[in-house]
Write a protein that binds this DNA or RNA. Structure first.
Lengths: 205, 205
DNA sequence: TAGAAATGTGAGCAATTATTCGCATCATGA
DNA sequence: TCATGATGCGAATAATTGCTCACATTTCTA
């Protein structure tokens, strides 16, 4: 009955080129299965088969399937954070609408690469014992956005950042789920939402 | 390898009072497990145990665990839709801010009852073959909101409704996940977002 | 080129979970 | 009250999936 806290970190770091390729194949196969067949099809045997390697090889590098997901999640996170850092860099010297545009672009770009995968991994994250890491990521992302809005004199930048992130997240999520592909138009609507929210705040004081 | 499309609908409708109670116990146990122990603990045997009935009884009414989740999801949906219908009724004759307030209240109320459960069920929905039903629900919800915003002369009511629903969804989700409990303040922020979005639209034309 | 170290293999065992079935108990109506 | 159908039970079994291990192959290095 005890859960025994299974390890999530890779078992062994690949040293040679071919083992690196094996790991990549496993990760890619896992991603493909998650994004197009769903979690019930996500079994170690199936992942290995699709990757063209044996289960034994899989277990040489990953202690279990959760560990594979953990790597994918971390990859996604790093990309997302990088996108946002770049957006913040670009937004220096811009006015508020310009800054909003840069941030919104980052939020969309993150889902642009592999929309279905991004969505699944976010759901998967909830079942993974990565709470501390997840918290850190959210915190950094929030700080980035807080910095930008604070620079433009927005009141209560902390709350505003939280809300802006959440509303953009919701809108992008819905758009992807609904199969929208016109990302330029989506960006425009996100900007409208962001600027609208910020304006409404100004009006009140 | 074939998935064989398992049935999702209840097997037998309970006729006597005690069987009704059995079903309720099963559904409640399932809900409790999902909201506090997570999906990995959601097994038929465990559900039956917590419900205080035998597995046999469980399988008498549900062809599998997905069927239990399906019932819970449908229940949640009905409640949500009812909340929104009521909100629309209340919003008749109100001005735009008043209408926004009513809709926002409905969006929050839906998560107020059992926040953790609502969140889990939404995730669970994605793995269930209920796409048609899900689509219908979203459509009806959208129509309700379209009606309200159109009444107030909002341009492109269709797109606006979609965006408003999505942004509120995202914000409520984030708030619940973050453990927020001050729902009044959350409502205020949602209203700000909604009205801000609608205003930003007006400004453009 | 020989030995060592790394990597790859997949049948098969272990563990978990889903599901059934024969039988006991309870409710109903004639 | 008895008979019949509904409901409940849970050990036993089926099915799935996780995971290991003894051995084969490849690469490295000295």
């Amino acid at each position: 009955m005890s859960v025994a806290a299974k390890p999530l970190n890779p078992r062994k770091t690949p040293l040679q080129g071919r083992s690196r390729a094996t790991c990549d194949a496993i990760l890619e196969a896992a991603a493909r299965i998650l994004e197009s067949e769903g979690r019930q099809a996500f079994t170690t045997n199936h992942v290995a088969e699709l990757a063209g390697v044996s289960v034994g090889s899989l277990y040489q590098y990953f202690p279990g399937k959760e560990a594979i997901v953990a790597v994918l999640v971390r990859q996604m996170r790093r990309e997302m954070l990088d996108d946002f850092k770049e957006a913040v860099r670009q937004s220096r010297g811009e006015d508020l609408p310009g800054a909003a545009r840069a941030l919104v672009r980052a939020a969309v770009r993150h889902h642009l690469r592999r929309p279905a995968l991004a969505q699944v991994l976010e759901r998967e994250e909830a079942d993974l014992p990565l709470d501390a890491e997840t918290g850190q990521l959210k915190q950094r992302l929030r700080e980035l956005v807080v910095g930008v809005v604070a620079d433009h004199g927005v009141a209560e930048p902390d709350v505003a950042a939280l809300d802006l992130i959440a509303m953009c997240h919701g809108m992008v999520d819905a758009a992807v789920q609904g199969g929208e592909r016109d990302f330029a138009q989506l960006c425009a609507r996100l900007e409208r939402a962001v600027l609208g929210y910020l304006n409404a705040g100004d009006i009140r004081r």
